[in-house]
Design a protein around this nucleic acid. Sequence first.
DNA 1: GATATAAGGTCTCTAAATGAGACTATGTCA
DNA 2: TGACATAGTCTCATTTAGAGACCTTATATC
Lengths: 136, 136
Amino acid sequence: MAQQLEPHRALGEKFESWMQFDFDATRCPVRNLLDHIGDRWSILILSALAGGPKRFSALARAVPDISKRMLTQTLRRLQSDGFIDRDVQPTVPPQVTYSLTPLGKSLAAPLLTLIDWAETNFASVVEARQKMAEAA
Amino acid sequence: MAQQLEPHRALGEKFESWMQFDFDATRCPVRNLLDHIGDRWSILILSALAGGPKRFSALARAVPDISKRMLTQTLRRLQSDGFIDRDVQPTVPPQVTYSLTPLGKSLAAPLLTLIDWAETNFASVVEARQKMAEAA
DNA sequence: GATATAAGGTCTCTAAATGAGACTATGTCA
DNA sequence: TGACATAGTCTCATTTAGAGACCTTATATC
């Protein structure tokens, strides 16, 4: 026996422990996080801001296929979760700059491991999809 | 200067490199992965299966607030992406067992880092939300 | 002077995704 | 005979997301 649990076994045990929250997604840290950043845009926006502060329109350009509506909505939620700061300069027109908080920056490390996985394993996923498509 | 880039800087540079895919989410590995497992259920189901193979009804019990419809849909997609295997025993009624593939198991490690982050930083997120709520 | 553009959004309308729950087939158990 | 279980599918209602017009004020252009 290895003294270190294989990752997927460890993940299985974690999952069991989530049961203690009665699957109340608001109380379980993991489900809560997934509900907040587990969408199409949050991770993208956090990544865009990881390079440095950006203004609203710069973010819209950086993620061209997001609508203003969803950009606003996602920024508001990331802000209220403490991942980003919103700084308004009271000029006319106003200038609003968004930046990562220390908490937001701390999320970068785990996101990177996920992103590295995606980059190295993308080919396998594409291959699996092709096999499924052929079988059908 | 540290020879190792800070994680959030590294993430920022990754983001820039995604531009080369013209923000075509089907070709960018990261956007592609996010579109497929970045939803409310996929990670939960993968985690449930990390503890070992499970049948359809066992998964439904393990994740009580998922509808059968979404459970079926999510399982199909995880299967076609090569994360899980689907094994049908032609008994009556049929018994269908789902299990992680090696690819699915390999995703456990990066997921764990994200989950560990969620567990250790949940308090900060809750605190941020309270501050925002008070300010409003 | 009229028009265009920019900022950072909001608002409305439509389209897509999701959730709830009824319904299916066949067999075992009481 | 009726109830229950398996692994889903199907329909309908609700929720969420996307597209794009619109807002305010100021500066630049024609």
